[in-house]
């Protein structure tokens, strides 16, 4: 129980330090929130005003499997790995 007393005392100290600093709390509360909205997935229009759907007029006739080769940033982490460790 001594450990718990110590932990709670430390928690109280931490809370008190923040609660006693109204300037900090006020600043955080009034901070402007620009750019918080995330674009939804359901609308076609892009933020630049162009219509994203219009660019999607690609036909899909390929009954064959696409050959999967990951070519993104994963290559910067040492390439391919095997489960259980670096391959």
């Amino acid at each position: 129980m001594n450990k718990r007393h110590f932990l709670i005392a430390a928690a109280v100290a931490g809370i008190a330090a923040v609660a006693a600093n109204p300037a900090l709390a006020a600043k955080e509360g009034k901070e402007k929130c620009y750019g918080i909205a995330k674009a939804g997935a359901n609308d076609c229009a892009s933020t630049t005003g162009s219509h994203a759907c219009a660019g999607q007029a690609k036909t899909d006739n390929d009954p064959n499997e696409w050959k999967y080769v990951a070519k993104g940033t994963c290559a910067d982490m040492g390439g391919s790995l095997k489960a259980g460790g670096k391959g």
Binding site: Q56, K58, A70, K71, G72
Partner: peptide, 28 residues
């Protein structure tokens, strides 16, 4: 068919931008 696949890629890319960057556009 092409538009349907493009819509899936767009919606999933909106939720998984890091996964998309990791594997690349074509793979994603």
């Amino acid at each position: 068919r092409g538009n349907l696949a493009a819509n899936w890629a767009k919606a999933l890319g909106n939720a998984y931008p890091v996964l998309r960057a990791l594997v690349g556009e074509d793979f994603f």
